[in-house]
Every structure is written in structure tokens, then in C-alpha cells.
């Protein structure tokens, strides 16, 4: 990896036809960062998205084939839910799990790699869709070429 990563910035990329990748450097040893991803007591403190959300359900059965279930809620009653199955757990380096939402969303396979960088940790989180079509649909990019509409925000996303 040649990209220089900065603390405090998340980089987003599409490394292949079927993937979306987010990378971030966290200023902590990777054992701790791995725990932050895999222990409910930690996950509920930070994996909350924008201000205003809490995570009333955070179930983690951390073993291959074990399931996970996260549910977020906001004061106005709005809720979000997703779940999946752990496929590979190699602390403190690597975590592979499936992820699905309600409805017809395709299931993704998410791989999180924790790389030690002299006391800091590079977190590379990759979502793999079952096909390019599914990935592009998620990004809205399948439409981009033929369409006379503004995808400025999406371009920013892919930049």
C-alpha cells in the first residue's frame, strides 16, 4: 500500500469491481482496536454514525459461524438494523463476517484488516458485494455514464 494515511481522515475507495473500501488510522495498538470492533461493551460506544444514535441491541457471538446483530435507534423512533455471521476471527489481525439488512439488499462479505503501524493501527474495512451490478447499484454508479443528472455527491464519495 503506497497511500499515506493520516490520522483523523477516512479514505474511501473501490479497489475492485465488487468492493467498497474504507481505510482509517487509529492512534491505538491493534489489540485494542480489534477489541473495539468485536466486544459489545466497546462497539456500543463508538459505532454509532452521526450524532443522535444509540445502539440498544449489540449481540456478538464471536466464533466462526457465530452471529452478530446490531440495532440502532434515534430519539424520534427511527431505527436501523443489520445482522450477519462471523466467518473468520484472527485476533488482532483480521475479521471476516457477512452483513445483511432487511429486505432485498444483497448480503455483503466484510473483511476488516488491522495492520500495526508503530503503535498505531491501520484499519482496512472492505465490503464485497455478490456482483459488480449489486455494488454499482449500492453506489448508484451503474447509472452514471448514460445519465444526465448530478452525481456530484457520489463523485465526492469515490474521490
Amino acid at each position: 500500500m503506497t497511500t499515506a494515511h493520516r490520522i483523523g481522515a477516512t479514505d474511501f475507495a473501490t479497489p475492485s469491481d465488487t468492493e467498497i473500501e474504507a481505510t482509517r488510522v487509529v492512534d491505538a495498538p491493534r489489540e485494542l482496536v480489534f477489541d473495539c470492533w468485536t466486544k459489545a461493551e466497546h462497539v456500543t460506544k463508538w459505532m454509532l454514525g452521526p450524532e443522535g444514535w444509540t445502539m440498544p441491541v449489540c449481540e456478538i457471538d464471536l466464533r466462526p459461524g457465530g452471529s452478530w446483530h446490531f440495532k440502532w435507534s434515534r430519539a424520534d423512533g427511527c431505527e436501523m438494523e443489520m445482522q450477519g455471521t462471523y466467518e473468520e476471527i484472527s485476533p488482532p489481525e483480521r475479521l471476516v463476517s457477512t452483513e445483511r439488512w432487511d429486505g432485498d439488499w444483497p448480503e455483503t462479505v466484510n473483511t476488516v484488516v488491522f495492520t500495526e503501524l508503530d503503535g498505531q493501527t491501520l484499519v482496512t474495512s472492505t465490503m464485497r458485494y455478490p456482483s459488480k451490478e449489486a455494488r454499482d447499484a449500492a453506489l448508484g454508479t451503474g447509472m452514471k455514464d448514460g445519465m444526465d443528472m448530478s452525481f456530484a455527491r457520489l463523485d465526492a464519495y469515490l474521490a
Partner: peptide, 27 residues
């Protein structure tokens, strides 16, 4: 279609905000 593009934007915002919180939390 704009809502789909919004989903992508939402994904980005979700991880940006979460990671910022993680920075504070690990500190």
C-alpha cells in the same frame, strides 16, 4: 436514484462519524 446516492453518502458519513468517536474513545 438520488436516494440511492444518498445511501452511499450515508455510508460515508456513518463511518466518518463513527471513527471520529473511536479516536476519542481509544484515547
Amino acid at each position: 436514484l438520488e436516494e440511492v446516492a444518498e445511501w452511499a453518502e450515508h455510508y460515508r458519513r456513518f463511518w466518518d462519524a463513527s471513527y471520529e468517536r473511536l479516536d476519542d474513545y481509544v484515547r
